[in-house]
Amino acid sequence: MRPGGTGRKATSSLSIFESSVAFGLITSAVLAIASVGFTLQFAVTNVLNLAYGAVMIAAAFAAYAVNQAGVTIWVAALAAAAVGSVLSLFLNRVIYTPFQRRKTSPIALVIVALGMTLILEFGTQAIAGPTNVSYTMAQGPMLQVGGFALSAAEIAMIGLSLVIMAFVHVLIRYTRLGKAMRATAANRDLARNCGIRTDRVVTVTWIITGALCGIAGAVFGMNAGTFGATSTDVFLVLILAAVFLGGPGEPYGAMLGALVIGVATEVSAAFIVPDYKDVIAFVILLTMLAVRPTGLLGART
């Protein structure tokens, strides 16, 4: 911000800036869960699963059903995780793997994934109905955290996201499974030569990343307020922007990408035109692809 002008003006634009950053951090928190799951899934399974957003929203509706039965959304999110896992496993076993066995090209598989997006979204709509829904949840008191005013629920969302990032970090850095996942992602044939049963690693990866996708769906629903069966269509573009910004297949890159995209879209919404906030994400993505195609943390040759 340019200094100067009247004191009042400076304060008010500063507070707009601060609150837009706060909004951005919440968006980043949701985006980080979704993007880390997406990038890990892509790296290990080699499938660019564009039906990810559709799985997210189906899982969000599953959490809604449990929430309607009187369970707090924070517990109902576990139902979203379960549905995310099951749907992702289904997509892999019943759709993607048979096509891969027939040597379907990766680009054709992307078209298959787009088709599955429609099938899943309309399937969700057929079951849940065409009207938007909202979780029953308390926002809690407003709290001042580091100069930002956030509700208790929003702080909990950010906290949940941080816990999940820590979980992913420990998983890929320190566990046997995580190492097998990284080896499979880097060079599947060589991983098999190390004795790693990569088919199992891939299956477990669909389960884990499906759960992340499901939780991301539930948190997306909390943050959105109201949502319908097609509400993640634009959000998928934000996920792709965060993933490719960080470098496809790079979990830490996706975290960083989610932070940048989340904050940039909300801050630009406050200072440019709110309608264009998702466009900003895409402008960042296109700039990155032009300047550094491997992404911020991508170093693959």
Binding site: R182, A183, A186, N187, D189, L190, A191, N193, A299, R300, T301
Partner: peptide, 13 residues
């Protein structure tokens, strides 16, 4: 232990 002709290491690691 099999050492392939190409792609014989995990390049990003």
């Amino acid at each position: 232990g099999y050492v392939p002709q190409v792609d014989d290491v995990f390049a990003p690691l």
